[in-house]
Simulated assay, not measured.
Amino acid sequence: MEERDSDNIKKLLLEYITGAIDKKGLEILTHWRQEAKSHEELFQRLISEDFLPKNREECILSPQDTEKEWQQICRRTFRKKTIRWQRILRYAAVFLLPLCLCLFLLKQKQDIPELPPLAQAIQELKTTAPILTLSDGSCIPLEHKATEEIRSSHSSILRTGDTLRYTAVKSADTTIHYNTLTIPKGNDYHLMLSDGTIVYLNTSSSLKYPVRFNGAVREVELVGEGYFNVKHDPEHPFIVKANGIAVKVLGTSFNVRAYQEEKIISTTLVEGAVYVKNRQSEVILTPSQQAVCTPEGRDIDVQTVNTDYYVGWITGRFIFNNTRLDDILTRLQQWYNFEVFYEKEQLKDLPFSLNIDKQKDFSKILNALERTERIRFSIKGNTVVVKNY
């Protein structure tokens, strides 16, 4: 990369982090991120809450500290990719130290005060436990991360922490018996189906599935969001039905988001291949493609995406990329107990990128957004008030 180009990228990275980037600059930065996977990985690490300091003074690093920090970033982001080391270390000199020096220049601005801990006003929504509904209609609250065996006449279920593992019980009965796992707000859960398929269920979701798969297909019904790592079985296709669409696979990894209140259904493919079908259309996805449609719509739109943005939730992180503020806060409402009030309607459309641990205190998430110097928050009861900066 030529020095002139690298200087421009450094400037755009700084403007992005401080919220001062304009539309043209955002287009240039987006193009740079798409040029190479290493660019995108570097960008995500730089904007991550785990990397950005809590205040600008902490960004004053000595050359030795800078090198040490960069080595840590490289080990976390590019482990086992030794071929890239020389190129990555060049990025350290090109980006990291100049970026920190630029942030040091900004310390003359008034620091944004940290919002106080909101343990009382804004709490995580873990008010009810996930519910397992058995085929006979009985409900089992999964209240504690205990280890226990749940037995019925049709299956054996091993519960370990926040994971359910099914083992089929041999039986002459060929009737298909269903269980339903329901995940309330503020929770997520994992389960392994009897065929070895692994499913991650996100908050406010439910999955209806057979305790044992019989017949020519393996079929489940999803409401909300789920990530599927399907056990390969070419003789028994796996089908996910969700809000008017069907996703058919043989063995692959993909994410389906189909919350009824959002009225948009997206299927994001990580590995393998899937068929996505609604009432009028059918498409085949290859890795890193996403299909988007509505329950009533005819067409299915297909686009190439960075899958990390759509499956990051299974690793315990909130990841947003140029996402409307209103969409970000709506997503957070699935995890925290709060309402939102905007002083100006146009604030809803401000785009932000965020990469932060879901276990962070809610105030830390708001502080991360405030440090862009584009918006301010105040808390009144359990209402988050959004203001101009």
Rank of each mutant, 00 (worst) to 15 (best):
D7E: 13
K10R: 13
L14K: 14
A20K: 10
E41M: 09
L46K: 08
E49T: 09
E57D: 07
C59T: 01
S62M: 04
Q64C: 07
Q71P: 00
Q72V: 15
R79A: 07
R79W: 07
K81N: 11
K81H: 03
I83C: 00
I83H: 15
R84W: 02
Q86N: 15
R87G: 13
L89M: 05
Y91N: 05
L97S: 15
L101F: 13
C102D: 08
Q108S: 05
A121D: 12
Q123R: 05
L134D: 04
D136F: 10
K145L: 11
R151E: 14
S152W: 03
H154C: 00
R159G: 01
T160V: 10
G161Q: 09
D162C: 11
T163H: 15
T163V: 04
R165I: 09
I176C: 06
L181D: 09
P184M: 04
L191R: 03
G196Y: 05
R212L: 06
E219C: 14
E221N: 12
F228W: 12
E235R: 07
P237L: 01
V247S: 04
L250C: 15
S253E: 15
Y259T: 14
T267N: 13
T267K: 05
Y275M: 06
R279W: 02
E282I: 09
V283C: 04
L285M: 15
Q290D: 13
V292A: 03
C293Y: 08
I300Q: 00
W313H: 05
T315R: 07
I328N: 03
Q333A: 12
Q333K: 07
E339R: 03
Y342T: 14
L347M: 10
K358P: 00
S363H: 01
L366Y: 08
R371M: 04
E373W: 01
S378E: 04
G381E: 15
N382I: 05
V385Y: 13
N388D: 15
